Computed example of a mutant assay.
Amino acid sequence: MIDALRNKKGILLKQHDRLHAKVIVGGRRALVGSANLSGNGLNLEGNEMSGWEEAGLVTTDPKQIGAIKEWFTMIWKSSRAITDAEVEDARCKWKERRATRVKNDPPNSRSGFLLKELGSEELADRPIYLTIYRDWISDEAKRACRMYEEELTGQQTSKSAKLPPMYENWPELPKEAQLIDLYYGPRGALRCYGVFTRTHDIKFTYLAGSKGHLAVCRRDDKIMGCLFGVKESQRFAEDLRPCIEKIWNSDLAVGDDGGKFIRLADVAEMLG
């Protein structure tokens, strides 16, 4: 919005580093309130704004309008021009905040994650991906992970010790993103093992001499502020069953016949 207004004739824009008030003033009317002129302050857009309570006061009192204009003149004089670098910085920060917004549920809602309830608008800009695979982690990859943890902690790990979630030879897997893990068997079996976030990488060498890569993850219990446990995992797999072949063969999916990943927003569109 700011970038567009800066290029319009007859419009002057400035910024004030300590200004938080929302005021619109004209010749005969003024508005003072808490609401931003856009959803940016809440990192929300469009219908995502529904349910938020704001307050505003409209006045036509000439004395009040005069006082507001005097206040605005004082603020304007102490403000400065907006630079291109600041606009670009704000754009980057907005993108980051959009990615972390929670699902727009009623207050105190504890509903679990349900993909069918989400539209493309609510999933847009979110770093959430579906990982689909048919190949399991190799024994050599598990050994490499144990060796890495032993070097890191200085303690020997048992072969029966539980390893963290990880993906073998998926170096292009998105970082700083949530990954919904789904096994898709060659006979059509579907099982969702939860949601993970990639934390670090391990490079290793196979016994045959080729190079290997592990994208190691942590397990999360929520997506978009919604619970994602065992029940939600089962329901998620069942919701995808009718169109899993379409998702697996989609041009939007990145990977090979062993495993692929695709944006959850694209998956939701396929579900309709």
Rank of each mutant, 00 (worst) to 15 (best):
I244Q: 04
G272T: 07
P174N: 11
E117V: 02
P107V: 04
A30P: 06
S111Q: 08
L130N: 03
T83M: 07
K77N: 11
D17S: 10
V254R: 04
N249M: 13
R80D: 10
R146K: 12
V267R: 02
R219N: 10
D84T: 09
P165C: 05
V87S: 02
R28P: 06
E176I: 05
E53M: 11
G56M: 01
A208H: 01
A21K: 05
W170D: 15
A67Y: 02
K116D: 09
G258I: 08
C192W: 05
N249T: 05
T205S: 10
N108Q: 08
S38A: 12
A35P: 01
C192P: 03
A85N: 06
P106I: 00
E70D: 15
G185T: 02
I132A: 07
F72M: 11
H213F: 10
D256V: 08
S78F: 12
R263Y: 10
W94P: 06
G119M: 07
E140G: 05
R29E: 09
G259E: 04
K95L: 12
E117S: 13
A237N: 03
K142L: 00
W52P: 01
V230N: 14
A141Q: 02
S78K: 15
L252W: 00
R134P: 12
G10E: 01
V230F: 04
I137R: 13
D105I: 09
G41F: 03
E238N: 09
K211Y: 09
L57V: 15
V58T: 15
E121C: 00
I24H: 08
H200W: 12
A99L: 08
L214H: 01
P242G: 14
I137L: 15
G255Q: 07
N40C: 07
N43W: 04
V216F: 13
F228V: 05
L179D: 00
L207G: 15
Y206S: 03
G185I: 01
D220G: 11
L114V: 08
K22I: 06
E48G: 08
E150W: 04
K142Y: 00
I24R: 06
G56F: 02
V254G: 06
A21Y: 00
P171F: 14
T157R: 10
R6D: 05
N43A: 15
W94V: 09
P165A: 03
I75M: 06
Y129T: 10
K116C: 08
V216I: 14
Q15S: 05
K159P: 13
A85S: 14
K95E: 05
S233G: 10
D251Q: 14
M147H: 14
L240K: 09
T59K: 03
A237Y: 01
T157P: 00
A161K: 02
L152Q: 14
I75K: 07
A81D: 14
L227S: 13
D239F: 08
A67V: 08
S50M: 04
M74Q: 13
G255K: 09
F196S: 01
D135A: 11
K69Q: 08
A81C: 07
I223E: 01
